[in-house]
Design a protein around this nucleic acid. Structure first.
Lengths: 228, 228
DNA sequence: TTGGCAAATGAGTGAGGATTCATTAGAGTG
DNA sequence: CACTCTAATGAATCCTCACTCATTTGCCAA
């Protein structure tokens, strides 16, 4: 549902977009070949790489275009603005993530295992696409409105997913019910997220499977007292 | 208007400062009145407010100066560059935090209580200074190298603090020893950090004391199975 | 070959903003 | 008052982009 939203472009004065060159034509195709076209994807990939390396505000569109092997102007045939590129890149990633989760949940029903799977997938995905992982740990936290609202949406969805699993676990008696599902969800997400950040910033590797299992161990059984 | 002839002779001048008009003084004081001077502090406070509101890259130095009630140039009498302002602001905050922790630890020795105290202080501090909290959750995660290295240092110190406490708990047998202290430290930090982020982004409040206690409850006893 | 059209190009435009520095204000001091 | 030194000022400099658009390229059909 992309309408021409009146959003203040970053730093640019709002300018009425030309509504097509010919007076008669209605909406000119914002995206020449459609969202899935090869160039569209190339630009997103390039943006992820470049921005991960230098940060959003230190990544000129020209650098992204160059990395993608297209002209500067071409970026604007596929995206309305620089920040739309960032948003779409993050969108794409989240979408993929949820698709995998939904698939796996069709045959994996135990809440404990579901949580562990999500934790694992989160870590694993980041391992496989370091650039995107950097974006998620950095640019997505920007306070700038253009990321903030949108990030919130994605994060809220993630948390929501976890809460549902946790609530089912509570309902079936395998999780404590005297603790809010929201709190637990945030603890789990926060723990994974922090492990990831730390790994990205320090460059230290981890083993996704094992790390996910350990985090779940801590959260499920606690680290106080003897091991059960 | 501007007929810019190609006079690209003078690039960005290096930041070699003029050594004062009169000979004699070797080192001119980079900071007129010293670090603790009133204006120095005012500029830091202003920077925190402005940057928290608009983000680092959307906060012109002129806006920070205006908020502090000084001229643009004055900022450069106290700080070498815009990013030094940000760094010093974060530094100041961490310093205060560690001072309080060190003080409290002098009379609080139980590892469990120490962890809970740190968690509480972390949340509490953020409540009292929302602007700074926003900076910590956003600008500090920037990938730009200038923040990254520096942030890493601060975060590493925080994690280090937690690990020491945890190790002591393990040594005295009140914490499980089959889980790495690093992992637990990251889980704890991550959980608190995420709760904070979430609160800041959604605007939902929390009660520091209670939240810290709950997080520790989860981490110490786990949320799997019945409550002990 | 020519005409038409979509896609792509990349130099140009214009705004923004970090930093500088010549100048002014102020506070002592004799 | 005259002189000096420091702190503070803010207009000016000068560079960096985000985004535009006139032009070119490439393709296909007639």
């Amino acid at each position: 549902m992309n309408q021409n939203e009146t959003r203040t472009e970053s730093g640019r004065r709002g300018r009425v977009k030309v509504a097509g060159s010919g007076a008669g034509t209605e909406l000119q195709p914002a995206v020449p070949q459609g969202v899935g076209s090869e160039k569209y994807e190339r630009i997103l990939d390039a943006a992820v790489e470049v921005i991960a390396e230098h940060g959003y505000f230190n990544s000129p569109v020209s650098a992204i275009a160059a990395r993608a092997g297209v002209a500067d102007g071409t970026v604007y045939l596929y995206f309305k603005s620089k920040d739309e590129v960032l948003r779409k890149a993050l969108d794409r990633n989240f979408e993929r993530f949820y698709v995998v989760v939904a698939e796996r949940f069709m045959t994996l029903h135990d809440p404990r295992e579901q949580l562990e799977f999500v934790a694992w997938l989160h870590l694993q995905t980041a391992t496989e696409n370091r650039g995107m992982a950097v974006l998620m740990q950095t640019e997505m936290r920007q306070s700038a409105k253009f990321v903030a609202d949108f990030s919130l949406e994605h994060l809220a969805r993630y948390i929501h997913l976890l809460r549902e699993v946790i609530r089912r676990g509570q309902a079936s008696g395998i999780f404590r019910s005297d603790i809010s599902d929201g709190l637990v969800a945030h603890c789990l997400f926060g723990a994974i997220d922090e492990l990831l950040s730390s790994s990205i910033f320090t460059g230290r590797k981890y083993e996704a499977k094992q790390t996910a299992a350990q985090v779940l161990d801590v959260l499920l059984h606690g680290f106080g007292g003897q091991k059960k």
